[in-house]
């Protein structure tokens, strides 16, 4: 059996100004290539966990180990560097830099990492935007913007692909298409995908579903298949 890509142990995350932790996860493992949807009500800490996995926030307790690297041991500069080489992130909205074209936005995904990357034009063609290469975000629909953001996130074949409600602002049909694209490209890039979602129909498209409340309550989280 393969070693887990991500090991979360005794994780404690708090919000500034709050005494009580928002997240307490005793243990959670993610296998390489897994595609997991993280569900839960608003304010339950889904995005907080995702940000911690991305190295965007410091840990108040416990450890997150990704591919053998303990994020708690990294300072902010090292976390930036690690994120640049190992993680792809897609946010709910405003993922793209408005002054950059679709192609330039995708190229930004590999700007801070050396080594091989995927062909940005081919990627944009793969997400159905081959004809929109030189359009700025203002001239793209929300669905198109998310597809550009996904292309950017996978361009450097990240070990970990994190998506924070990427379909939250999309209509159901577009949301489904974007989710399928995300899953397809994650599989193609060999990335482990964790997606935060509160839309049941979208969550249902994942084989592994995890409720944040289960992670918080239970010792070791169990995936529902």
């Amino acid at each position: 059996m393969a070693e887990p890509l991500v090991l979360v142990r005794n994780l404690v995350l708090t919000h500034p100004g709050l005494a009580e932790p928002v997240v307490q996860i005793p243990a959670w493992d993610l296998d390489p290539g897994a595609q997991v949807v993280l569900e839960g009500p608003s304010g339950s800490g889904k995005s907080t966990v995702l940000h911690a996995l991305a190295g965007l926030r410091p840990l108040q307790g416990g450890t997150i180990i990704v591919d053998g690297i303990s994020l708690g041991d990294l300072d902010e500069t090292a976390r930036d560097r690690w994120r640049g080489s190992q993680v792809g992130v897609v946010f709910q909205t405003l993922n793209l830099l408005p002054g950059f074209t679709a192609l330039e936005n995708v190229c930004l995904g590999s700007a801070f990492k050396s080594g091989p990357t995927m062909d940005p034009v081919a990627l944009l063609e793969a997400v159905g935007l081959g004809h929109r290469l030189h359009h700025r975000p203002g001239h793209l629909s929300l669905g198109e913007q998310q597809r550009v953001a996904i292309a950017r996130a996978v361009i450097r074949r990240p070990r970990l692909l994190l998506a924070d409600e990427p379909t939250g602002s999309l209509d159901p049909r577009t949301a489904e298409a974007v989710t399928d694209l995300l899953q397809h490209l994650a599989a193609q890039a060999g990335s482990t995908l964790v997606m935060v979602c509160h839309q049941p129909t979208i969550a249902a498209r994942f084989s592994q579903r995890m409720d944040i409340r289960d992670l918080n309550r239970a010792g070791r989280g169990a995936c529902t298949s």
Partner: peptide, 16 residues
């Protein structure tokens, strides 16, 4: 501000 934060999220360090 958000653009720069996005660049950080993409791996650009503070010094960059």
């Amino acid at each position: 501000r958000r653009d720069l934060a996005l660049l950080r999220a993409l791996g650009a360090g503070r010094r960059t």
